[in-house]
Design a protein around this nucleic acid. Structure first.
Length: 432
DNA sequence: TCTGGGGTCCTAGGACCC
DNA sequence: TCTGGGGTCCTAGGACCC
C-alpha cells in the first residue's frame, strides 16, 4: 500500500497560519513578478479564479470580491514544507517528497504497527500535521501510487470522507475509478484528455479498461501502459529518492521574467549572471559539475510580433566545472552570441545539463588537469558565507549593474509578500 | 503597462561503431 | 556487385508533473 499526503491549498494555507483572520476568506497567491495566480484558497476557487489567470486581467474581480492577494513567499513555503515532511519521515520508514506540498509514503508492512487500521493511522497523521504546523492535509491510500493520487483527489473533493480515502477493496477501487473524470487522472494532461474523449473514454474507469496495446499506441508508449496498469492495481512504480540529499537532479536551471522589458546589454548581462550564480550554487550543493550550458533569452509572446519568441545557445565545456567565475565567463560569451540590439527582452535563463560528479571530470588524452584548487576553495568559502549570513552576502561583480546598489532593473515586483515569519529573525511574530 | 519557474521521462531519427 | 544486424550515443521535440 502507498499513501499520498497532500497539503490543501498549500501556499494559501501557509499564509493563513500566520494570519488566522483569513480563515474562511478567499486568498490567492501570485507567481514571480506578481504575474499570474498560482494558488487559491477554496473560497477563491469557488469565486471562479483559475490557476494561471494573469493578475492584471483579474485584478478588478479580486478587488470587488475582497480577495486577499499575496506575492509568493518561498522562504515561508519552503520552511513550512520542511516541517511537514520532517514529521512524516518520523512516522514511516520511507517517504518520497514528491513536491513542495505532497509526499508518498510506503505503507508496506505498516498494518501490523497500526493495528491493521490504516484509516485511523491516516487520520492521526492529518490531526498531528495540523496541530504541529497549522497546515490542513488529505490522505489517499491505495495499492499503487496512481491510485493513491486518485484516492487523495476524492478525499479532497468529498468532505463527507473526512479527508481520508482508503481503497481497501476491489469494490472500493472500482467505485473510485468511476467517480473521477479521465482528465483528472495523474499523467493525463490536456492533449491526452482530448484524445481520450474523442475515443469515448471519459472516466478513470473507462481508462482502466483499455488494453496495454491501445495505451502504448496512444498515450506515449510505455508511460501510458504503466499508467493504465497502475489504475488496474498493478504496481509499476515504487518510491523514488527525494530532496533529502539522496536526490540528484539531472538538470539545473534558473530563469526569470524581468520586472520590465530590457534592451541594454549590461542590464540583461546582470540578470544572466545572477541566474548563473544561483544555478552554480545549486550545482555545487549536489556535488556536481556541468559540461553543457544553455543560455536563453525571450521576448514578449503576447503581442503582435510573430514567433520565434525565444532564442538559445548551448555551449559545451570540455572540462566539466561548477566554478561560478568560469561559468560567468561562458555565460557572457553565450549572451554576446545571442544578443540583438534594439530588442525588448522580457525573460532570460540558464540551464546546466550533462551533470557529473565534481572532481571526476574526464580529461582527454592531451589535456592536463587545470589548476582549479584555488577556485574550488574560493567557491567553498563563498557558499559557506552565503549560507551563514544569507543569500547574496558575497557575490561576483558581474551580477551587479553599473547602476550601483538597490534593486537591479531585471528584478520583478513582489508587492504583497508576507514576512518570512519562520526563517528571518526580524520577521518573527510578536504576540501582545 | 501588466501573462511563473523548475523539473521528469520517452520517442524518433541521425551519426557512428563493429 | 550485391547484401546485414546489432548496438550506442546524441539531440530535438513532445508530453507530463507540481
Amino acid at each position: 500500500m502507498f499513501a499520498l499526503v497532500d497539503c490543501n491549498n498549500f501556499y494559501a494555507s501557509c499564509e493563513r497560519v500566520f494570519q488566522p483572520r483569513l480563515e474562511g476568506k478567499p486568498i490567492v497567491v501570485l507567481s514571480n513578478n506578481d504575474g499570474c495566480v498560482i494558488a487559491r484558497s477554496n473560497e477563491a476557487k469557488a469565486l471562479g479564479f483559475k490557476m494561471g489567470d494573469p493578475y492584471f486581467q483579474v485584478k478588478h474581480d479580486l478587488q470587488i470580491n475582497n480577495v486577499q492577494v499575496f506575492s509568493s513567499n518561498y522562504a515561508l513555503y519552503g520552511d513550512m514544507s520542511r516541517r511537514v515532511m520532517w514529521y512524516l519521515a518520523q512516522q514511516v520508514p520511507e517517504v518520497e517528497i514528491y513536491s513542495i506540498d505532497e509526499a508518498f509514503l510506503d505503507l508496506h508492512g505498516m498494518e501490523k504497527y497500526v493495528a491493521n487500521d490504516l484509516d485511523a493511522f491516516a487520520r492521526t497523521l492529518r490531526t498531528n500535521i495540523k496541530k504541529r504546523t497549522g497546515i490542513p492535509t488529505c490522505v489517499g491510500i491505495a495499492p499503487t501510487k496512481t491510485l493513491a493520487k486518485l484516492a487523495n483527489r476524492l478525499a479532497k473533493k468529498r468532505p463527507e470522507l473526512g479527508g481520508v480515502l482508503h481503497l481497501r477493496s476491489e469494490a472500493r477501487r472500482l467505485w473510485a475509478l468511476k467517480q473521477v473524470a479521465v482528465e483528472d487522472v495523474w499523467g493525463i494532461g490536456r492533449q491526452y484528455a482530448a484524445k481520450l474523449m474523442a475515443a469515448g473514454i471519459y472516466t478513470a474507469a473507462d481508462l482502466a479498461n483499455c488494453s496495454d496495446a491501445w495505451a502504448r499506441k496512444h498515450l506515449g508508449g510505455v508511460v501510458g501502459v504503466r499508467l493504465v496498469q497502475e489504475l488496474q492495481g498493478r504496481v509499476c512504480q515504487g518510491l523514488l529518492p527525494s530532496e533529502d540529499g539522496s536526490l540528484s537532479r539531472k538538470s539545473i536551471s534558473c530563469s526569470r521574467t524581468f520586472g520590465q522589458p530590457l534592451s541594454a546589454f549590461n542590464d540583461v548581462l546582470a540578470a544572466v549572471a545572477a541566474f548563473t550564480s544561483r544555478a552554480a550554487e545549486k550545482l555545487r550543493r549536489q556535488g556536481d559539475a556541468t559540461h553543457l550550458m544553455t543560455v536563453f533569452l525571450s521576448k514578449n509572446r503576447y503581442g503582435l510580433e510573430p514567433p520565434p519568441y525565444s532564442c538559445s545557445t548551448v555551449i559545451t565545456l570540455h572540462v566539466a566545472t561548477s566554478d561560478t567565475t568560469e561559468l560567468l565567463r561562458i555565460a557572457r560569451m553565450a549572451l554576446k552570441r545571442l544578443w540583438q540590439a534594439d530588442t525588448r527582452y522580457t525573460k532570460a535563463g540558464v540551464v546546466f545539463d550533462g551533470l557529473e560528479p565534481a572532481g571526476h571530470a574526464q580529461l582527454s588524452l592531451f589535456e592536463s588537469a587545470p589548476d582549479t584548487g584555488k577556485r574550488d576553495r574560493l567557491m567553498v568559502e563563498l557558499d559557506a558565507l552565503n549560507r551563514r549570513f544569507g543569500k547574496n552576502t558575497v557575490r561576483l561583480a558581474t551580477t551587479l549593474t553599473g547602476r550601483g546598489k538597490g534593486r537591479a532593473p531585471w528584478e520583478g515586483k513582489a508587492q504583497w509578500c508576507s514576512p518570512a515569519y519562520t526563517t528571518r529573525l526580524q520577521d518573527l511574530l510578536t504576540v501582545y
